[in-house]
Design a protein around this nucleic acid. Structure first.
Lengths: 243, 243
DNA sequence: AAACATCTAACTGTATGACCAAATAAAAAA
DNA sequence: TTTTTTATTTGGTCATACAGTTAGATGTTT
């Protein structure tokens, strides 16, 4: 707002660029005006004037904020405050994995830590709809055992996301959903490493155990089953040379 | 030159804009060319030509990628592949918290889940440097007990980040460091809720217990001490009306 | 007259091009 | 080796054309 009156506060520039400053201004605007997800923001021109910058700068700021899913932009309509989701974190995780600074086993360690908690929370707090949804996914996995592996992979990923959602904590959902991209890259290796049909059926029964424990609201069994599930996943990948 | 010929051989225009397509292209380029953190990317003009878009579009794509810390941009120098860090996730978490979809207690639940694991890993894997660094932080907390609370807060945050780093898993570090912004917003409330000096000293001794357990490589004691630390934090904030 | 659907016009973001300034990095000179 | 110069590259601005969205106005139907 200070920059609104004087377009060139040279000594205020410090070390960050105008775009980054505009991003800060927009975030401050959202807070100051108590704008919640879905609320519309001023137009690019108005935002630019508000920060005392040109329209392209405001555009870049909006673009940056939209990649973080802080705002939602679209052709022809004003920017709106966005609902947080996993997509941006997904890209960050993907890049972290790509750089080699995070191994698959390390990522699985984080996933296990998170999911041992979500399965416990889900067991305690689950709704009946959550339980039936979970059992339905397992049912579909059994049915898809003969079909292509892609269907089972999608069901596997969904299974864990349903549990996370049943935990009632959005942050767990976002974190666990963000692993989806990396999981897709290694899931096939684990599945192919389970050579026999018995082994593959065992993997599905593992999910069934978890679902049944959540249905029965048996916290101890649910945690144990989830632990066994991750132990199995870690070992299978290890045997395939994935460290 | 772009409008004359078909810039992209594919008909994948679908529903995403040119900027988002350019972001995908740049990420694909990094992977295809095996560019690791620190490696320079082609100039904006080259990138724009590569994706068949104008320079402003390439600029916005680079800006979006830089907010995710996938690339690192700077005035006068070419964009480089960036090392993943917590800053982008920090903004996402901040926004998630602001929208009210994530309560402070829920955030603390995630933190506790994460840190119960990092303290165990740190206890097992710590280097001598990690242990002395931890004890040094506790030492400084004692010394700063009389000074302003801001110093103690910074030391508190550093304490947890050092443990995360000692875990040897970068993802834990990124996740835990990303809580810094939100922690800053509520730490003062917890500190002021600890009215008496005895209570405040107890909080510091709590950190000392954790540090000593890590130093002694006593996993059971370390986990118990961390649990007690979070129990205390939860209760203090609860008494202050922070749900 | 009131409710509904349709259409048009104003508004807004998308994309491009050219331009200048500032900062960097590389080449040249000391 | 150090300093200076030069070329390259990004940061930022402006003007323009284009393509969607939205909302108001219009007209029709109930």
């Amino acid at each position: 707002m200070t920059s609104g009156s004087t377009p060139s506060p040279l000594m205020e520039a410090s070390d960050i660029g105008l775009v980054e400053q505009a991003m800060i201004d927009i975030r401050a605007y959202i807070r100051a005006k108590r704008r919640m997800p879905g609320a519309v923001l001023p137009s690019e021109i108005a935002l630019a004037a508000h920060s005392g910058v040109s329209r392209p700068v405001a555009r870049e700021a909006l673009r940056g904020l939209s990649t973080l899913r802080v705002v939602d932009i679209g052709h022809g309509r004003k920017a709106r405050v966005a609902m947080p989701d996993a997509s941006s974190l997904s890209v960050i995780l993907d890049h972290t994995s790509y750089t080699g600074k995070l191994s698959i086993q390390q990522m699985l360690d984080v996933r296990r830590t998170l999911e041992l908690r979500t399965v416990l929370l889900a067991t305690i707090r689950r709704s009946d709809a959550d339980a039936t949804a979970l059992l339905s996914v397992v049912q579909q996995m059994h049915a898809a055992l003969e079909e292509d592996q892609n269907t089972i992979m999608k069901l596997d990923i969904t299974f864990h996301e349903v549990i996370a959602r049943a935990s009632g904590n959005l942050l767990y959902s976002i974190l666990i959903e963000s692993f989806r991209v990396i999981t897709r890259q290694t899931w096939g290796i684990g599945w192919r490493a389970r050579a026999t049909d018995d082994n593959r059926l065992g993997s599905i029964l593992c999910h069934e155990n978890i679902a049944n424990a959540i249905m029965a609201q048996d916290a101890v069994r649910a945690e144990a089953a989830m632990n066994a599930h991750f132990d199995s996943a870690v070992n299978v990948l290890l045997r395939a040379g994935i460290t």
